[in-house]
Amino acid sequence: MNPFSYHRPTETKDALSQIQKANAKFIGGGTNLIDLMKEYVEKPSELIDVNALNLRGVKTHADGSIDIGALVSNADCAYHADIQTHAPLLSAAILAGASPQLRNMATCGGNLLQRTRCYYFYDKATKCNKREPGSGCDAIEGFNRIHAVLGQSSSCIAVHPSDMCVALAALNAEIHVRSPRGERVISILEFHRLPESTPEQDTNLHPDELITMIRLPANPYATHFNYLKVRDRSSYAFALVSAAVAFDLEDGGTIKSARLAMGGVAHKPWRDLEAERMLTGKRPSKDLFATVAKHVFAKARGYKHNQFKVQLGERVLVRSMTEAIEKGVKR
């Protein structure tokens, strides 16, 4: 592991000034950053521990929107009464990820910055454009079972591994960030990016920006929702494919609005707005769901070991939509 200097500012302004140092990085829960530092993939020379900053707490506003402090742990978020009541999809997604220990440690802000689990990204004996820009991608022709089928590029086929972010994408979360230049709000849909020719950039966050909170806008999706995660074992494994689905139904059962986001298929949580529009105003049916799922994966392209994700993705999406309708919690 790279030697580094450690700082633990108690004021945000100090954190924002310390991050200006060369090769500095924020650390929150550390569950992914320390992992990568041990592999010598991440080599910060300054670590700014943000845990003493006042970025905790979950606050529900009168309009139904919820603010989640960047330092709220994944577990605290998932089990928080307001989240369970007003954003149960987020709870479900978080609890489908990692392990209880990791969820106790990992922060919501940090989860947004989780890096890919691509085997090649982690292994310095191989080529990886994300780890070393311009070195090539050994995954494209290699073992690519867990890799992307949507939105990938010729330089990178890695996927974003988070479950939480898939639900955040479905819920139109806003990411509030701060830098010496001031504050800005980034839509979750704009937060993560596709790899294109610069896969070393996972997100559109600037290196000196600090995530301060996640705002969930008020949503009508606490009844008909579902997070379905399919993986190679029943727990403590990353998704091969996951689908966050939420519906707002008319009294008669017609879909007033829908949200669909997929995990495990792309370099970012995969929202398909067009597919959501296809659902709007329709009555839920097997055929409708099949058509929509086909649409989502119409442009999907697999590789030697992950071809199955296209078919799997469609089935998981249909199933998740079906369960969201059928198993809608009556309140």
Partner: peptide
Amino acid sequence: HEESVVDHRLGRIMNHNLAEYHVPVNRD
């Protein structure tokens, strides 16, 4: 679950960790 996956182009086992070399967990 079990397979040490070798990338035959590199002659290298790629799932060389417990996150990707799967053995059952309690829930399995």
